[in-house]
């Protein structure tokens, strides 16, 4: 497992793509891209379809999985495979804020996601998780957002225990936090 994180526009996606392609070559594996973003409206759908096509051109098969991330395993073919998940921030939001207005606790969300990511990791030759550094703007948000930040922070800490590598991308430059 490799955790790749960074802020807005830092180049984390491009870096993660490069790494997953290297992992695919090394393992002679199929690349699955787990897209976690919830898509709204026709315009959003069109944009997503375009991105799916672009990724297909790069040899990546997209699975859209906005929650229950471990369910994606069933949609993968047998044989060697590597997985790029983008991104963890969206997955946490989707698991936390339910469509009926209820909000799951950060602890529950964190436990569920970490468990499911470990399940995926055990079934694939490589897992790269792209996530967001949302922790340094110094703003006191309302409770929902603060809980979201806590959940994501807790997941990061748990995943860094699991991951062989943790990389922060700064201005397109990978800065290794753990090897």
């Amino acid at each position: 497992m490799i955790l790749v994180l960074g802020g807005s526009g830092c180049g984390k996606s491009a870096y993660a793509e490069k790494r997953i392609q290297e992992a695919a070559v090394k393992n002679h594996a199929t690349i699955y891209y787990l897209a976690t973003m919830q898509v709204y409206g026709e315009e959003g759908r069109k944009k997503v379809e375009r991105h799916i096509e672009l990724r297909r051109g790069k040899g990546m098969l997209t699975i859209e999985q906005t929650r229950e991330i471990a369910d994606s395993i069933r949609q993968m073919q047998e044989g060697p495979r590597v997985v790029l998940l983008e991104d963890l921030g969206n997955l946490v939001a989707n698991e936390m804020f339910q469509s009926d207005g209820t909000v799951n606790s950060p602890k529950m969300v964190a436990e569920k996601i970490v468990t499911q990511l470990k399940m995926i990791s055990a079934k694939v030759s490589g897992l790269i998780i792209v996530s967001n550094n949302v922790f340094e703007d110094g703003i006191e948000y309302e409770e929902g957002t603060m809980n979201y930040i806590r959940a994501l922070g807790e997941i990061h800490q748990k995943l860094t225990g699991e991951a062989e590598e943790v990389v922060e991308v700064v201005a397109g430059i990978p800065v290794t936090l753990k090897v």
């Binding site: 960074g6 802020g7 807005s8 526009g9 830092c10 921030g89 967001n132 550094n133 949302v134 922790f135 340094e136 703007d137 110094g138 703003i139 948000y141 957002t145 979201y148 930040i149 700064v170």
Partner: peptide, 8 residues
């Protein structure tokens, strides 16, 4: 300044 490390 690094300005991107926050909630979007």
């Amino acid at each position: 300044d690094e300005i991107g490390n926050g909630i979007v």
